[in-house]
């Protein structure tokens, strides 16, 4: 084990880059507490602008004066949670099948899935849009969730993970007469918690910050996500005249995701449970 001294050295060593890393975010936080008309003239009033002086809460108050902000939060939450659950379901099932079960055409399915990884969003955007319009699906939660469910990245990630789990765990269960589906559910899924958490964080983030698709799909204000809603409030040239408010909306929109990350990060960085895997 590391001695205390080298540990403290390490902490000191990382502190500098960590601080530098944090500076843009701190700046954003500081700007969000400054009045817009001051920011229109200078963004570096006190200590490079890193200290919010003059101080105001107006930017936040203005955001919450929009009656629909809570609705937008709710929409974002529904969409992000819905998408995350769907992606987890689809990816773990397919990932497990591709990693651990043998069936004819498996390599074909894997390659087929990998190819999908390279399809740029722009190539499917319009066809998808017109398809949803034909079905009359726009302005709904499922329109915001469904196009993002089949992410090959998720399947790929889970497949890689399941592959790394030693065979003997599974074989022991098979000898006990446990079915493949039971192994998946009772043995594999619990083991997959770190990978699933990673995938969940990735998906949730993606869903939360997703912009172009919700923009065209959700035209009604009641269906806006928070990212969309906050963007719709902005005036033209808001970066020059309403900078503080933009920063405040950035903070507001980001906060839930940060909290979520703080809650779940320990699952990512956690020694694997008993009977864990070896590389």
């Amino acid at each position: 084990m590391q001695s205390n001294r080298s540990y403290y050295w390490l902490v000191t060593l990382i502190s500098l880059p960590a601080f530098l890393w944090l500076v843009p975010t701190l700046w954003m936080l500081s700007l969000s507490f400054q009045p817009n008309d001051v920011l229109a003239r200078t963004t570096s009033s006190t200590f490079f602008g890193l200290i919010p002086l003059p101080f105001t809460l107006d930017n936040y108050a203005a955001l919450f004066s929009y009656g629909q902000t809570p609705v937008w939060f709710l929409n974002s939450t529904i969409v992000a949670v819905g998408m995350t659950l769907a992606v987890l379901f689809v990816s773990t099932t397919a990932g497990y099948a591709l990693a651990r079960l043998s069936f004819p055409g498996k390599n074909f399915v894997i390659i087929f899935c990998l190819i999908g990884l390279m399809v740029p969003e722009q190539a499917v955007f319009i066809p998808l849009y017109t398809m949803f319009a034909d079905f009359g699906w726009h302005n709904s939660y499922h329109a915001l969730i469904l196009p993002r469910v089949a992410v090959p990245i998720g399947v790929f990630l889970m497949m890689q993970f399941f592959k790394a789990i030693p065979r003997d765990i599974e074989e022991a269960a098979r000898l006990d007469g446990v079915s493949w589906l039971q192994i998946f559910w009772h043995v594999m899924l619990p083991l997959a918690r770190p990978a699933m958490t990673t995938l969940a964080i990735l998906t949730f983030l993606y869903a939360w910050n997703d912009y172009l698709w919700p923009l065209v799909s959700a035209q009604k204000r009641e269906m806006f996500t928070i990212t969309l809603g906050l963007a719709s409030i902005q005036t033209n040239f808001a970066q020059s005249e309403g900078l503080g408010r933009i920063m405040a909306s950035g903070v507001i929109a980001t906060l839930p995701v940060v909290v979520l990350f703080l809650l779940f990060q320990r699952y990512v960085v956690q020694a694997m449970t008993a009977g864990g895997t070896k590389g």
């Binding site: 099932t93 397919a94 399915v109 999908g116 998808l128 589906l181």
Partner: peptide, 21 residues
């Protein structure tokens, strides 16, 4: 089992990625 487990992905994949592409 494999077929059953793959179905959700394949259906969504075909409908929302492959066909639009």
């Amino acid at each position: 089992s494999a077929a059953l487990l793959l179905t959700p992905f394949v259906v969504a994949y075909l409908a929302f990625l492959v066909i639009p592409f």
